[in-house]
Nucleic acid binder design. Sequence first.
DNA 1: CGACGGATTGATCGTGCTCAAATCATGTGG
DNA 2: CCACATGATTTGAGCACGATCAATCCGTCG
Lengths: 229, 229
Amino acid sequence: MLSTQQQNFRTARADSRLVPQISVDTELLAGYSQTAGAQFTYRAEEEIYGEAEPAEFVYKVVSGAVRSYKLLADGRRQIGAFHLPGDLFGLEASDTHQLTAEAVVETKVVLLKRRSLEVLAAQDVQVAYKLWTAAAENLRCAEQRMLLLGRKTALERVASFLVEMDDRCGAKGMIDLPMSRRDVADYLGLTLETVSRAISQMRSTGMLRLANARHVELNRGKLLNAMDA
Amino acid sequence: MLSTQQQNFRTARADSRLVPQISVDTELLAGYSQTAGAQFTYRAEEEIYGEAEPAEFVYKVVSGAVRSYKLLADGRRQIGAFHLPGDLFGLEASDTHQLTAEAVVETKVVLLKRRSLEVLAAQDVQVAYKLWTAAAENLRCAEQRMLLLGRKTALERVASFLVEMDDRCGAKGMIDLPMSRRDVADYLGLTLETVSRAISQMRSTGMLRLANARHVELNRGKLLNAMDA
DNA sequence: CGACGGATTGATCGTGCTCAAATCATGTGG
DNA sequence: CCACATGATTTGAGCACGATCAATCCGTCG
């Protein structure tokens, strides 16, 4: 089911303003190791939790990739975030999850009981403070995405996405996308055909090259011009 | 310059899942009263702070309305949130603001030094915890808006907006919009003409009535059907 | 090799945007 | 009080970007 390229998507996270899930790891995982350090592996396409389910755990991606999304009644889907190795997700303040989370490819995560995290936060100001900055960082990414979804053209959206992924992955200019064109489309508020056409157009204008559909080599200079803020 | 209807927009906040800025008031303002309780009034259209400016203060709306937005280089604007009486805004974890904030109409705010809030949070777990839930609540609203911006039709967006405003205002089913059609459009990722047409269509199908352009009476039942999730 | 799912490309359609004009509301000065 | 100016809103006409429907193309795996 899994291509090797998909399985190999586990590069180190680079520092970036665009990274949606934050690395509060230090403090959080100090407490984390005391409480519940279960590692778990989800198969590709497997659901991790559903929207409106009780938020029992917080997750940290070890390897693989996760998509968090919302659905409308008729099946329209908006992916709110992709979670890559190093990212935390499922960290709600409310007691139920706000989005559904699924493994995009085979994905290893470590689990932390939300309850114990809250206890920790109630005792340790450092942890509580980190929870705040984590949420605030996610909020900043969401604000950036609102600008993209509300006001950018298809080409700008795809360019922004590729640059974001490049920033979040290891080798600069070389991206192994773990997700399908449909996932990208649902992340950017487009259709998969429009995403494909945008990528083809970028290829023809030398903004990028494709080793295959999932492996992209960026010409960041040209791409950033097409991107706007 | 200001219509009386605009000045009168200061209804009490109702409890709602859609409210973007949260009421952490209790704890925060306990600390707040110790530190800096300056009240300030901004004229309509006046800038409160600019994107990328140092985030020196946190604000709480007393009366009026505030818009927070981002711009692209060519002037396209995405309003990330409207802040109504009772809402906090400008509460960043980073040391610079991520959006520009402007008074929509004449607006009274109370100011709190961000620095003193951080000091407070470092001492008091309750405050730090409240900061987290505040940011997380904002994040939840942002996730909801991403679904709207990425996947809803014009009609659904306007319907969702009106219901949101209704939930956030006092008298149910009666809304006094403080903002122009252009502001609404930039909040919903549409043009002002499309917003106007959507409202006209809703009027003709009995979903709402207009006393004037800014005063809307909703038929929530019919409206909610047109809205989807 | 053939089958399958994902991606690309093509042709056409439609929602929402653009450009433009008419209408309405509010405020000003005669 | 009314005529007029101004700005916001509504409405109209035509267009364009991205969606939809459909046909290959390609890579992977049986």
